[in-house]
Structure formats: structure tokens, C-alpha cells
Design a binder for these strands. Structure first.
Length: 345
DNA sequence: AAGGCGGGGTT
DNA sequence: AACCCAGCCTT
């Protein structure tokens, strides 16, 4: 049987029931696609549900402020997605009268929408014949055809897109695109796929050659940088504290945090006390300091390992523009700070 | 073309 | 610990 027929047959029997699959409305489809970039369905699902509840239409999302959007996005990561999502919602609502661009090429012009996402929306919402190429597609096709193309190279995407286009039934691009990704997510998984029950186990080139575990080929390895964060949880005599917005480029842009002293390594207690005295001694009269966590929390990002200590800094009097514990919880924080506030503060 | 950008699951 | 996840943007 033809590749696409077998694939779609498998899909119709094995697909998950996902809320964004029961519609051709580009708004929820766009929302789900942004959320699922580099993110598993199980992780994105609760965010999709809370966003569609809070913002039923693109106009509702457009009318929100960025801080509300980031608060709802809190914990999902890659926060530029949320910022771009919000800007694009405003563009569609206010400049385009709420009407999504109707073609792959026009979708591609939206902030946060690249080749994959434009193809996904165009095929799922409009049945445009454009192939999606994501991590699943790289894996499925590289194995089925035994291709050792390095998927880390930019040129690889064109090659796989051309191949996927050839395989795609031109009268049903939406189902084919869903099917090949679902097949990669459920059957042709990265580690130890169960090829014994695979519908392609007589035609898969990698399986014939016993090379399934060697494909796809991916060259780039990323380097991890260690950073050392000391977060100062000031507390005045009324129990208020202060936070600041991260406005620099880099991680957690536009999220909030406690005042931060970053060092080149883990510092001992006395050194941190001295640094706090130097940076804040003029502004506040420091009564006492203590560590909330003796051992650093190691918060692992894909590209940075953050060694984090939280310090309680008790100060005399009242902090100007201090905020109370309830107000604190309304701001968007990196998840590691959010968890600290919920569990340890 | 290469690197930055989160957080969590799986092996 | 390494790898991956319905990738995109900036440099």
C-alpha cells in the first residue's frame, strides 16, 4: 500500500482526541501550534484550556495586557512565544479586523509563526497543500527512507519538505500532516520504538538495515553555561517585599524576580552579606540575613544551569513601593521563583 | 549558519 | 546525564 494511505489508516485508528483537532477555526489552531512549539502535548494541554477559557476569541487576547498573558503562560517556558502571541493577536484584531491571514505565505509574516506553524495552520484550517516539517517528520522520514541527512543543517528542512510534499495526498493535506506527526509522537518515537507492531515494519528502510536507533542524524550539541543567582527576598516590618521586572535581553524577558546578585561561583555566607550591605546598605537598614535554602537549587534550562539561593533580608521600617504577599502572587515569575514563593516563602 | 531561548518527560 | 519535545528569532 502507498505510504500516505497506510499512514492515514494508522492515524484514524490511533489518533488522540485533542481539542484543537475538532475545529478548523484558525484562532484555536494558531494558539495550540504556538504553545506546542518544542513542547509536549501533555505539557501544553492545560495552558491551551486556560487560554481558550480566558480568551475565547482573538479580540479577547488582543485586549488583555502583556502581563496577564505572561501570567497565564507562566511555567510553559520560551516566553517570547507569549509576547509574540500577544502582539500578533493585536495585529489580527486591530489591523486585520479579526480575520486571520488565509494563506501559508501570509501566515508566515506573523510574528512567532515560522515555516512549520504557517504550514500547520494553512493545512488544518484551510486545507492548503503545504507539508509540515517538525521533529516528528524528520524522524519518521529519515527512518522510513534511511536518510542520513543532518537535520541540524538548515538545508535539511527543504529536503524533507520536498519529500513530504511528494508523499502528501493533495486532496487531504490536513489529515496527512496530522497523521505523520502523530505517528512520530506515538509510534516512531526517539528511543526504542516498538517496530514489531509498526504498520511500516516491512517497508521501513532503517528497520531493514537495523539502523533505527541511528536516525535521524543530528550534529549540533549545545553548551551549557553555569550561572549563580542570589535572590534577595527583602522583608520590611510590615511583611512587604520588592520585586523587579527583567527588561534586559536574555532569559525570562519581561518576567519578574526578586533583586538579584549574580556571581561567578557559589559564594559563602559572609561574602553575600557583604555584597548585600554594599548594594543595599545605603537604601535600607539591614537587621538580619538568612538563607532559605542551604544548598543551591539547580534549575536546569536547556542552555544554562542556574544555581539559585534565596536570601531573607530583614530591613528596618517600611520599604517604599513594597508589595504584600497577596499582590506578589499576581505577577508573572519564572517557575523556579514561583515555586519558591508558593512553597518556601 | 549558529546560538539563544524553558521546562519537563523519558531513557 | 543526555536527548527530545507540533520551532522561531536574532546575530
Amino acid at each position: 500500500m502507498i505510504f500516505s494511505n497506510l499512514l492515514i489508516q494508522w492515524y484514524l485508528q490511533n489518533k488522540r482526541d485533542l481539542p484543537w483537532r475538532n475545529t478548523t477555526n484558525p484562532y484555536p489552531i494558531w494558539l495550540s501550534e504556538i504553545m506546542l512549539q518544542q513542547t509536549r502535548v501533555a505539557q501544553g494541554m492545560p495552558y491551551f484550556l486556560s487560554f481558550t477559557t480566558a480568551f475565547p476569541t482573538v479580540f479577547d487576547l488582543a485586549k488583555a495586557n502583556e502581563e496577564q498573558v505572561l501570567k497565564l503562560w507562566q511555567g510553559l517556558g520560551y516566553y517570547s512565544r507569549a509576547r509574540n502571541l500577544h502582539k500578533t493577536a493585536q495585529h489580527i484584531a486591530f489591523d486585520l479586523s479579526g480575520v486571520f491571514p488565509g494563506t501559508y505565505n501570509d501566515l508566515l509574516k506573523l510574528k512567532g509563526v515560522g515555516e512549520y506553524t504557517a504550514a500547520a495552520i494553512a493545512s488544518f484550517s484551510y486545507n492548503e497543500v503545504v507539508p509540515v516539517v517538525d521533529g516528528n517528520v524528520f524522524r519518521v522520514l529519515s527512518r522510513y527512507f534511511d536518510m542520513d541527512t543532518d537535520i541540524a543543517q538548515a538545508s535539511a528542512k527543504k529536503k524533507f519538505a520536498a519529500l513530504a510534499f511528494e508523499l502528501m495526498p493533495k486532496d487531504n493535506p490536513a489529515t496527512f500532516n496530522q497523521a505523520i506527526m502523530e505517528f512520530g509522537a506515538l509510534q516512531c518515537v526517539p528511543k526504542s520504538p516498538n517496530c514489531g507492531i509498526c504498520v511500516f515494519n516491512e517497508s521501513c528502510a532503517a528497520l531493514q538495515k537495523n539502523k533505527v536507533d541511528q536516525l535521524p542524524v543530528k550534529s549540533k550539541k549545545l553548551k551549557v553555561r553555569n550561572r549563580y543567582f542570589n535572590y534577595l527576598v527583602l522583608e520590611d516590618e510590615t511583611g512587604n517585599t520588592i520585586i523587579q521586572k527583567r527588561t534586559d535581553k536574555g532569559i525570562w524577558h519581561n518576567l519578574y524576580e526578586f533583586p538579584l546578585i549574580e556571581t561567578d561561583a557559589t559564594e559563602d555566607f559572609d561574602s553575600v552579606v557583604a555584597m548585600v550591605q554594599k548594594d543595599f546598605g545605603n537604601q535600607y537598614e539591614i537587621i538580619s540575613m538568612l538563607e532559605y535554602n542551604e544548598k543551591s537549587i539547580i534549575h536546569k534550562l536547556s542552555h544554562q544551569h542556574l544555581h539559585i539561593k534565596f536570601w531573607k533580608v530583614s530591613v528596618k521600617g517600611t520599604i517604599e513601593n513594597g508589595i504584600d504577599g497577596e499582590t506578589l502572587k499576581t505577577f508573572p515569575f519564572p517557575i523556579v521563583i514561583h515555586n519558591f514563593i508558593e512553597k518556601d516563602l
